[in-house]
Design a protein around this nucleic acid. Structure first.
Lengths: 228, 228
DNA sequence: CGCAGTATTGAGCGGTGTCAAGTTAGGTGG
DNA sequence: CCACCTAACTTGACACCGCTCAATACTGCG
């Protein structure tokens, strides 16, 4: 399928990459020339820092990673959480424009950026896959802009919880892989507001909590909160 | 340069597309098989709507376009303004996930999405250019997330004004191509806050205004406002 | 000159942020 | 296994930034 003469349109090819599929060491399916090197990070360890040369790109195998930007006075915006199956570390340009850190002990596959670019230059199909992934990330970013610009704290938290559950593939009860601070810095809120909002959602019967991180979502209630 | 056997890495190729260059009808430099059809829209005219089949992609020749998302209750988030030289209309998937409208009378070049995708499938270089453009858009989106999530109204407006001036290639005095409502919906504010903030910036000597849309920026002052 | 759309200004309110205690959870050593 | 300790989380009181509602002024165009 990978080397067919008439591959499907780029967007289709990218859409077919199954979420969570590990591709046993490959960057994506049907690309055996791009084999990643396994690597591990411990909790809170930096994967790369803003301004560093973008030498590698990464695929999460287990654990979770946050990428963020900071202002000089410490205000932080997390632009994405990267869960198993996700790729991160692609940049427009030579240098990383984010910092990336492991949320918990995390295993990744590392791919040389140069190698990936070389493969993209030689094989249109690879470039199309990468294009599709970038468009996917862009779509997520645009959805998040709507959330940051126009949604209330309650809507943000509710949408976030449903999104994380979806991406973890969880059904029912699960543990949030990030702290309140991380959630707050992703949603453009403070930890206090996140905490209060979750309490309020629990009071409204939209979720159950146990032990800080563990939550059980009542999707029907939460969907009503988010509306649209 | 375009068809060399050892093209530069994708990111380089994309970075070399000069901002504002019209490429005389081409989607981008060195891609003569993708010739756009000129088309015009009048002020406030819809280019495409959310949910519509994504049949074309667009390159702005003159004028300006906004792309946005709306919630069911009317809250709107503009995710981007597209000025001469900019491309828009690429989607991850078959359907548009935004609405696009002309801010003023606008000329564009239209390219068939299928054709573009076919070209990308056949020529790695084309796909790399498209990948690079998507990464560029993603970078802008991520910067905007930081603005929406973590910056004050004053910082947002100041950063916005400098950005528009940069992109218009203006030096000194220029006319904002969009209304206060558009600015507000881009910055995640209300029109009143945008208006008040601009008044305040003028009082602080960070800019001069004339006739509603016309502004003259004092970049040194504005940079101090944004800080980082 | 008049009209309609656009922008500004003002007063008051409310949702989030800030600051400050408490409380809980989870890990470590006795 | 428990006591302790620290980090994470929750809760409360209050302040403030930006929103809402309302009135006024401007601008561009017929």
């Amino acid at each position: 399928m990978a080397t067919g003469l008439t591959p499907p349109p780029c967007s289709h090819a990218a859409a077919k990459v199954p979420v969570g599929d590990k591709h046993v060491g490959f960057l994506f399916a049907g690309c055996p020339e791009l084999i990643g090197t396994p690597f591990s990070y411990t909790r809170e360890e930096e994967v790369y820092g803003e301004g560093e040369d973008a030498e590698f790109v990464y695929k999460v195998v287990s654990g979770a990673v946050r990428t963020y930007k900071v202002l000089s006075d410490g205000r932080r915006q997390i632009t994405g959480f990267h869960l198993p199956g996700d790729l991160f570390g692609f940049e427009q340009g030579e240098a990383h424009r984010h910092t990336a850190e492991a949320l918990s002990d995390t295993k990744v596959l590392i791919f040389g950026r140069r190698q990936v670019e070389r493969a993209a230059n030689h094989r249109a199909e690879v470039a199309c896959q990468l294009w599709g992934m970038a468009k996917m990330s862009l779509r997520q970013a645009q959805d998040h802009m709507l959330l940051l610009g126009r949604r209330s704290a309650t809507e943000r938290v509710a949408a976030f919880l449903m999104d994380v559950e979806d991406r973890l593939g969880s059904t029912g009860t699960f543990d949030l892989p990030m702290t309140r601070r991380d959630i707050a810095d992703f949603l453009g809120l403070t930890i206090e507001t996140v905490s209060r909002t979750m309490t309020q959602l629990e009071e409204n019967g939209a979720l159950l909590r146990a032990g800080g991180r563990q939550v059980t979502l009542r999707r029907s209630h939460l969907r009503r909160v988010v509306e649209d």
